[in-house]
Nucleic acid binder design. Structure first.
Lengths: 207, 207
DNA sequence: ATCAAATTTAAACAAACGTTTAATTTAAAC
DNA sequence: GTTTAAATTAAACGTTTGTTTAAATTTGAT
């Protein structure tokens, strides 16, 4: 269904970086062509138009982004361990595809562009179901509290990550994160720990 | 220092809505002129350029956005009450100025535009200091845990809110939020409660 | 009523935009 | 080697972009 040749994939990757950096409207087809070392006409030739290139990019990445959360749910782990693993999985996936998410979020929240988000929403709904099952398991075992807004749990997890990303210049400044290496380390250690700690506290604290 | 006449303020408000909806690059000066019922040339006449209009807008809103957190800190409240009030204050302010924040975040995270964020960063640093003082007060009274990443607390608070905003179409769907009224209610009730609960759990839970 | 400054206008500007064209080169099949 | 389709190119297309111009209008003080 989504079969692109090497040339097309290279264009998609270049476009992904530019769209994430400068936005869709802020990136011209000439920018893309220059970065990918191709002729401008190749974009229309391969994808039809700039907007269809964006749609192709989203489909390409979503098909590459399927979480194996069901496997996680079936593993022999305590609910708390599952939550830990789930957060690690979440952060890793969105950190690796942060450019993609940045584009999608901007284009979604601005109702201007009409892009097909059905596949994206289906993925989110599915992830939410798996999470609900894990939470219910923990509640049945009297490990987790029952007055938790499960729908907003992924929002807190991903929101914390994305707000960190959005304010990267601020955190670079106050936390002395000079290289991309420093940032990756902070994300995979401090930030992940903070999120795990937060979610676990919310699920297990005594009133 | 930031003295705009009525006409300029109307242009700023119109521009704010359009920028938030369609992005800076996605909004033309003709769009702004049309919405504000003015001639295109008035934008250059009053602000110099489209980009200087954006800078004026940010300055205008930030000077309008000063949180009286110091007053909160000095009030006779328990640390937990202070945190509750602080979260209410945070959510109320960013929800009222969500368009502004959307613009700033996008323009900051894309390093493309060079806008003066110093005033914005100073505000954030100041808010962080006030929060640190409240947390320390709670820790000295043995109410709050000591192993909390305070720097990431506002990130979790605001990140949860913004990620909710960004995925508004998704939540509208699964939570049946049909009108703006429904959304405002959900933000000021369920969402605020969830955030308060989360932060309090993180600050007070037993290991 | 007069005059000067501030405001508003329509028109024009060059530059950049996304897209298309038609000609050329490359690659593969016979 | 010839043929045919695919890939690539430079050039041009018509719009739209942000900005400027110069003339017209409004405003407020004298």
């Amino acid at each position: 269904m989504t079969d692109f040749n090497d040339k097309q994939i290279e264009i998609l990757q270049v476009a992904e970086n530019l769209f994430a950096e400068q936005g869709f409207d802020g990136t011209s087809v000439r920018d893309i062509a220059k970065s990918a070392n191709i002729n401008i006409a190749m974009i229309s030739y391969y994808f039809g138009s700039k907007e269809k290139l964006l749609e192709a990019l989203i489909l390409y990445r979503i098909s590459d982004m399927r979480l194996q959360m069901e496997n996680l749910y079936r593993e022999e782990l305590t609910p708390i361990e599952k939550i830990d693993r789930l957060i690690e999985l979440y952060i890793k996936r969105i950190h690796q595809n942060k450019g993609m998410y940045q584009i999608i979020h901007f284009e979604i929240s601005s109702g201007k562009r009409i892009i097909n988000c059905d596949a994206f929403n289906e993925m989110k709904k599915n992830n939410l179901e798996v999470l609900k099952n894990i939470i219910k398991e923990g509640q049945d075992k009297n490990i987790f509290n029952k007055d938790v807004n499960v729908v907003l749990l992924p929002t807190t997890i991903m929101g914390t990550y994305f707000h960190f990303q959005m304010n990267k210049p601020f955190f670079k400044d106050i936390l002395n994160l000079n290289t991309q290496e420093d940032i990756n380390n902070y994300v995979y250690n401090e930030l992940t720990i903070h999120i795990k700690q937060t979610i676990k506290a919310l699920l297990t604290y005594e009133k």
